[in-house]
């Protein structure tokens, strides 16, 4: 037990928690925007792959790091447009289209990678985002290392979460997005376009998912690997449910989740890791996600029109 306490009070553990939480927060915010507008976006896993690939490739081709982030976001929005076109005006099954977009996006990244780097056996590295030096706060003992030695993209992730919460709850646009996920007919009656709002939400949300993916290549690691997203997108779908479709709770969920992930990596090095198979530790995030879904199922406040396509003039 004392080993766990040692881990929990170490500054490097908390720095890792925030680092692991960052891509989850970005992608979870993206999924949350889509779902609040009434569209389940299962393209998330593939869109994160596309973000990870395009952001990294742009930087490898000589763009600045923020240019890579922008490219990833643009690519994610393109796939979001594909998803939105099929699910919103055409009202196709959000399950099937989402999985289709994930398969298409993942395959596109693999295809483009092999096309651009045909001979490469190990992917080339780029120079990733470095931790920002924060004056005063960064020099604090323990806290400085635990909380204030993160890259700019991590700060951006938390800023995005704040912006999403503000927009959803404090602006007319946010009200319209929330309303379109609860009662699209009422929104239409106000003279607003249900199709426009929903498509916009899916496109913006997909852009954020892609930036979440780009975090992996541009801030966490410095290369692109085929399997690097490894189910994080699906975990974010679970995090939206866990956060009861609220940005603040979803961020807390992502941090809690990241804490378990950081803990399991460290527990593998302890006596516990010598007894239990390492696969059990690796499975922990997925097991926790399922448990979170079960735990929240009773009191989840699902947007009323989630997964219900809207066709004008139809009741």
């Amino acid at each position: 037990m004392s080993e766990i306490v040692d881990i929990l009070i170490s500054a490097s553990f908390w720095a890792a928690v925030i680092r692991i939480a960052s891509p989850l927060i970005l992608a979870t915010m993206g999924e949350l925007i889509c779902e609040r507008a009434g569209v389940l976006n299962l393209g998330i896993e593939g869109i994160m792959v596309i973000g990870a690939f395009t952001g990294w490739m742009a930087v490898y081709q000589g763009m600045p790091l923020w240019g890579g982030v922008a490219v990833a976001m643009g690519a994610g929005m393109l796939f979001g447009l594909l998803h939105a076109t099929l699910t919103v005006p055409f009202g196709l099954s959000q399950h099937v289209v989402g999985l289709g977009v994930t398969l298409f996006a993942t395959a596109s990244a693999s295809f483009a990678y092999r096309l651009m780097l045909p001979e490469v056996t190990s992917p080339p590295k780029i120079e990733p985002f470095q931790p920002l030096e924060i004056p005063v706060l960064g020099d604090l003992p323990w806290l400085g290392e635990a909380l204030f030695s993160q890259t700019a993209l991590t700060w951006a992730a938390f800023a995005v979460a704040g912006l999403v919460a503000f927009t959803l709850y404090r602006t007319p646009l946010g009200l319209a997005v929330r309303a379109v996920g609860e009662n699209p007919a009422a929104v239409e009656a106000q003279g607003l376009s249900v199709t426009g709002l929903r498509m916009g939400a899916v496109i913006v949300g997909s852009g954020l998912m892609a930036v979440g993916g780009a975090f992996l290549t541009l801030s966490a690691f410095s290369s692109f690997f085929f399997e690097m997203v490894n189910g994080r997108g699906w975990i974010c779908v679970a995090l939206v449910v866990f956060g009861a479709w609220k940005p603040g709770k979803a961020v807390l969920g992502a941090i809690l989740f990241a804490a378990f992930d950081a803990l399991q990596i460290r527990l593998q090095q302890t006596d516990l890791g010598a007894v239990l198979p390492y696969q059990l530790f690796l499975a922990l995030p997925f097991i926790l996600s399922i448990l979170a879904l079960i735990l929240m199922s009773r009191r989840a406040e699902v947007p009323a029109a989630l997964m219900v396509p809207y066709n004008k003039g139809e009741r």
Binding site: V96, F104, A107
Partner: peptide, 16 residues
């Protein structure tokens, strides 16, 4: 990977 791209494309075209 062209195979994976084609099949995903076929899926999306087909549902439409």
């Amino acid at each position: 990977y062209i195979a994976d791209m084609l099949l995903a494309t076929a899926l999306l075209f087909m549902v439409l």
